[in-house]
Design a binder for these strands. Sequence first.
DNA 1: CTGAAAGCGCTAACAA
DNA 2: TTGTTAGCGCTTTCAG
Lengths: 348, 348
Amino acid sequence: MTNSTPRPRRRGARVTLREVAEAAGVSTATVSHVLNETSGARIGPDTRQRVRDAADALGYRPNAAAKNLVTGTTRFIGLVADAIATTPFAGQIIHGAQDAAWRQGYTLLVANTAGNTEAERDAIAMMLDHQVQGILYSTWYHRAVELPAALRETNTILVNCYAPGSDLPAVVPDEVQGGRTATQALLDAGHRRIAFVNTTTPSPAHDGRLRGYGEALRAAGITVDPALVFDARPEQEGGYDVLPRVLEQGVTAVFCHNDRVAMGLYDAVRERGLTVPEDLSVMGFDNQEIIAAHLRPPLSTVGLPHGELGAAGVRLLLGQQDVPPGGRLEVTCPQVLRASVRNLGAAG
Amino acid sequence: MTNSTPRPRRRGARVTLREVAEAAGVSTATVSHVLNETSGARIGPDTRQRVRDAADALGYRPNAAAKNLVTGTTRFIGLVADAIATTPFAGQIIHGAQDAAWRQGYTLLVANTAGNTEAERDAIAMMLDHQVQGILYSTWYHRAVELPAALRETNTILVNCYAPGSDLPAVVPDEVQGGRTATQALLDAGHRRIAFVNTTTPSPAHDGRLRGYGEALRAAGITVDPALVFDARPEQEGGYDVLPRVLEQGVTAVFCHNDRVAMGLYDAVRERGLTVPEDLSVMGFDNQEIIAAHLRPPLSTVGLPHGELGAAGVRLLLGQQDVPPGGRLEVTCPQVLRASVRNLGAAG
DNA sequence: CTGAAAGCGCTAACAA
DNA sequence: TTGTTAGCGCTTTCAG
């Protein structure tokens, strides 16, 4: 290990507060007070400056472990994620949480459990050992989870998931509103006969988006036609395969359960010599940038607010925001309009 | 004077080692020894068991801060990332690092700096305060970086980046080998006239992959034709736009700088009524699952070993693996064959 | 084989 | 306005 040590200390030891005190000719208590800007500490400006100078000169760095030990409290927040590598989703949650935590002087301890129960147990144990203020338990897609018992030992906020039969606060995307928003975008462009390609897998997204779809339609005075609701695997292949059936129904627009499905559907549209949005308008869901922003034409969609989920999670944890009655905070899914919806000229 | 009376647990405090000792009727030293399985500690099996039982019964959890304080060393590793939310890349690095760290009993402190110098400084300061064993400084795409000065104060490993003029160990993908591998896959399928759609932006990937392309061709006895090397923006649009020029050259195969370019190129191919791989074989680069695995046909590509980059980073940091002479560890980019390359029947 | 005791670096009463 | 003094919970010699 090449460890060059340009430290102004002897034998690699770090500068301690006590050394700063000696250098400044004051007591450790004084140093502690000025460096922490303890409220109600009466320290003369001259002393204050002397301490600051000494600390700077020596390159003093506080020892977090010592501070944690004596105060009995840390500024750690644990974040356990089930899969941070497969999509950018978990990354966005981490990012949002990180930012919000950072803003309050907190640091994130992150653990990836890959859905492994044992890893999960270990991760939580380690977080507990580090006296975290609490734990954000998150999943990369919105779903129900079974909670590790160890979570009972600290404050826990569920992020992008919920635990049936538990009263732990949960922050989740508002799937119903999302479905409504997507459908409404199509309605606003004048479409009346709108298909919904839902997923085959049961999930809050499946149910919520469907409900939102129905609500928007009904609010526009349109009766929901079950023949216009399809199920497809939530991937490109699902969208590709479902198109013929969608077309048979003579719709002018289709709301896809997610962007990947929309991408596959685009392919099928093109293969038939048709084009989006001239022949078929398309709304996606998820706003997966890498796909949505670069399809031809760029895909209009509804975003999943992962960053905000993480951020709201830490706010709830730190008590900066109140947990809504029912313990469930639903975050809005924003509309992201691009170019895949044709305006029919009629107002919704 | 030590108070001999059993001290009452204050304010919902956690069980301490001392309480375990009292419950087991032994000293704290003994408890420490058995719980840590200190080598060379002579503790009778009976005592040992008694301690274990007491710890279990009380639900004892060690206090990491106290341990850190007394040992003067922590099992933290810092990971600073420039962008964990835009692609799954950073997530993969974190994942790989996490796993490797975890395996050695280390915990990751992660910070997202969004390229913000101040955030970077703060993040490193906080990691230093927590006495991290070292820091992994990472970027989401392979590039040169300018190092924050504070990194000098601890062991640092560069992950997916390098610092010109610094001798810090760096772990990076082997772009040259990657380019060679991609080209070789095409050669192996019998292709001889192979285009390379490189990116317009200068980068190690730009230079390395180009070099690998040339090396593979030359090794196959083919002269590199500069007319077959194109520059395109490293996105779908770049691939879409470049296709006409590629086709003019009468190639049978094209190696794209990345999967996104390949995706755009697919679209252009389809628009001309041609198909992949019948009319044109395509190799991508990056192995972005969400795209590559679900294009029609699925894209053959070369993977970027982000997870391994992170893992190797911690191994280097912890001294489990030697830093190669030159300080640069180049990790192999694996071939990922799917269905976008047509076999011409001739051996390369 | 086991225990007593001395701190690790820092904060927080309380004194002065 | 500043200093003294206990520890926080744990590891670690060193005695017994």
